[in-house]
Amino acid sequence: MKHRTFFWFFLPTGLAMLLFIAAPIVSVVTQSLFAPHEAVLVTVESCGPFGCREETSIDQDATRELREERPLGRFVGLDIYLDRGHLAFGEVAEAWQNRTSLSDFFKRLGNLPFYRAMAFTLTYTFTVTPLLIALGLMIALAVNRLQAGLKGFVIFFSLLPMIVTPLVGSLILFWMIDSRGVLGSLIQWAANDPNLSLKASTGLTWVMLIVYGVWHSAPFAFVVFYAGLQTLPQDQLEAAQIDGATRWQQVRFVIIPHLMPLVTFVALIQLMDNFRVFEPIVGFNASAHATSLSWIIFNDLSGETRQLSAASATSVMTILGVAILLSPVLVRTWRDFRSKH
C-alpha cells in the first residue's frame, strides 16, 4: 500500500486518537505543573480619626481578569507532585524521623492519601491477579470435561460477572453482603456475631473488594484458558499417560506448560486492568477504608471545586504506574516483531 493511500485510510482514526488521547495526555502533564491562581490581594491604607490602618482585601476584578487571561494558572513546577496530597516527601521524611517502630512508620504513611491509595491499589492488583488466574484455570479444566450440551450453558452464566457493568456488578454484591442482605446474614450467622458488618472494618472491606475483583475477572481467564485447552495436543497427553503420569502430573507437566503463554497474556492484561480499580470502590461505598489512584482522580474532579491540578498530578503518576506494568508487554511485542522481520 502506498504511503498516500495509507494516510487517507488511517487519517480518521489517527485524528481521533491524536485529539482525544494524545492531546489530553499532554494537557494533563501541563496542568499538573500549574496551580490555580491565588486571589489578587490589595492592601489599602485607610486613615480615620484614630490613626491609619492597613486593610487587605481581595481584588475581585483583578483576580477574574488574571484567571481569564491565563486559565491554566501559575507555574509551580513539581510542587503539586510533592505536596501533602501526592508524594509528600516532606511528611514521609518526618514520619521516618519520628517513628517509634517500623509499623508506626507505615501507620503514619497510611495517613497520607497517596500512599493509602497506593497500598490498596498494589495489594488489590497483586492478590486479585494470581487468584483469578488460579480460579479461571480450575473452571476451565472442570468445564472442559463436561458434555458438549452443558458447556454452552455453563459458559453463558460464566460470562455474566465479566460482561455486567462493573458498577452494577459491585452494587449487586454490595446489597447481598449488606448486614441485612442474604449473604450478610449468612456471614453473621456463621460467625455467630449479630453485629458483624463487612463495611465497618478495613480488613474485611479489602477482602470484599478482592473477592469482587476475582469474581469479575475470573471469567476472562476461564474463557482464554478454555480456548487454549481446545488446542491441547492429544498425543502429548497420551505419551504422558503411557509413561505412567498421574492425573496431577499430567496437569502439572503437560497442560500447564501448554497454557503458559496464555497465562502470561492473562496476567499482563489483568495487572494493567486491576491497577485501575475504581468502580467497585464507588459501588461498595468503600472509600472510607480503601481508595485507589483512579478513585483519587475521580474524587478530585467531582464535587463543587474541580481540582484539576491535583487530579492531573495523580493522573500522571497513574500513567507512569501503568507504563511500568505495560513495559513487559511492549518488550514481548517488540521481540515478536523482530522475529517476524
Binding site: 489530553p24 496542568q31 485501575r276 475504581f278 482522580i297 475521580f298 474541580r306 484539576l308 497513574t318 501503568v322
Partner: peptide
Amino acid sequence: AMPPITLVAGYLLP
C-alpha cells in the same frame, strides 16, 4: 492501557 479516568482532567478545561 491508559485508564480513561486519567484523561478526563485533560478534557475538562478545553
